[in-house]
Amino acid sequence: MKKVVILISGRGSNMEAILRAQPPVEFAAVISNKADAAGLETARAHGIPTAVLSHKGFDSREAFDAELARLIDGYTPDLIVLAGFMRILSEGFVRHYEGRMINIHPSLLPAFTGLNTHARAIDEGCKLHGCTVHFVTGELDHGPIIAQAAVPVLNDDTPETLSARVLVQEHRLYPEAVRWFAEDRLSLLDGKVRVRLDTVDPSASLRFPA
């Protein structure tokens, strides 16, 4: 059974969705850069070890990331899951976990990398919006795509209403992607993710909510 370490900075709603889904993994630890992150209590309630490493005591991003990597590696994880970890990761850190670290982003990448994705999708007149699970690389929000889920953008949508609908899909999609990794269904070939189709419905990763 593969071991997973989850990184959070806040309430960790995607983390909670993954825990509820019970993918066939061992949750080795939940780590936060903020001691008051609400998700730490959620992890403890599930019996998962927690740790806090504040970035404020370090002189550089690279120094913090080096210490964070040492902390993570103490749990010998197979997969690192970013679940609202609000830090831009250094190139060395990302390279260290290449092919073993995933993230979820609230847009249909490669569209709308970065912040304020829902407002930007509305402003651009998009008819579809959604979320993307991807492997993390050195280029922000540009890693190989594992899966996507789409929702329609309605005429009366606000960033808040659109965000809420996308979040429902995030909570469905992220646990599914973790399960795929745990069951060795994913492979990287020429910078693209392949999902083993004998066990996965090829239409399952992109759908509209009911």
Rank of each mutant, 00 (worst) to 15 (best):
K2L: 10
E91H: 12
Y97P: 10
H129Y: 11
V178G: 10
L173E: 04
P110V: 03
D198Q: 15
M86T: 13
S205D: 08
P209Q: 12
A38W: 08
L71P: 04
L115A: 02
H105L: 06
F64A: 04
L162M: 08
H118F: 04
V81Q: 09
G74T: 10
D65V: 08
S107I: 02
A182K: 09
H96S: 06
S32F: 01
L109N: 01
C126A: 13
A45G: 09
R87Q: 08
L173D: 00
A63Q: 14
E160I: 01
T199H: 15
L19V: 14
G130P: 04
V30L: 10
E26I: 12
G10C: 08
G47F: 03
L79V: 11
S60A: 12
G47K: 11
N155C: 09
L68I: 09
A69L: 03
L128G: 11
A29L: 10
P24C: 13
F208T: 10
T199I: 14
G39F: 01
H171N: 09
A111K: 00
A121W: 01
R95D: 09
L115Y: 00
G143S: 08
G57Q: 03
E160D: 13
G143R: 01
G84S: 04
I6V: 10
R207K: 15
A83G: 14
N116T: 13
P209E: 15
A38T: 05
G92P: 12
D184G: 07
P49C: 01
A29M: 05
A38E: 05
P144V: 12
A111L: 11
A119C: 08
P159N: 08
G92K: 15
V195W: 13
E91I: 15
D156T: 02
G47V: 14
L186W: 10
R196D: 14
A177L: 01
F208A: 05
L53K: 02
G84C: 10
A121R: 00
I122T: 06
V94Q: 05
T42E: 03
N116Y: 13
F58L: 05
S90T: 14
G92L: 06
R179F: 07
R194Y: 13
L19R: 13
G57R: 02
P144W: 08
L197I: 15
K3Y: 12
Y97S: 13
Q148S: 06
I80M: 04
R11D: 03
G125D: 07
A164I: 09
E98T: 15
R165Q: 06
A66T: 04
E176Q: 12
E170M: 05
G130L: 00
A147F: 04
D201K: 09
A29W: 02
A63G: 11
I48Y: 07
S187V: 14
L162F: 05
F93Y: 12
D73W: 03
A38G: 04
F85G: 02
L82K: 06
I31W: 00
V4K: 10
K34A: 12
G12D: 09
I88A: 11
A164S: 14
P209N: 14
L82Q: 11
G125V: 07
D78A: 05
A69G: 05
L68M: 07
L71S: 07
T50H: 12
H118Y: 13
A17Y: 03
T42F: 07
A35C: 09
H171E: 06
V94Y: 03
S203E: 11
G84E: 05
L188H: 04
A38S: 10
G74Q: 15
E170K: 09
G92M: 10
G74R: 07
A147N: 05
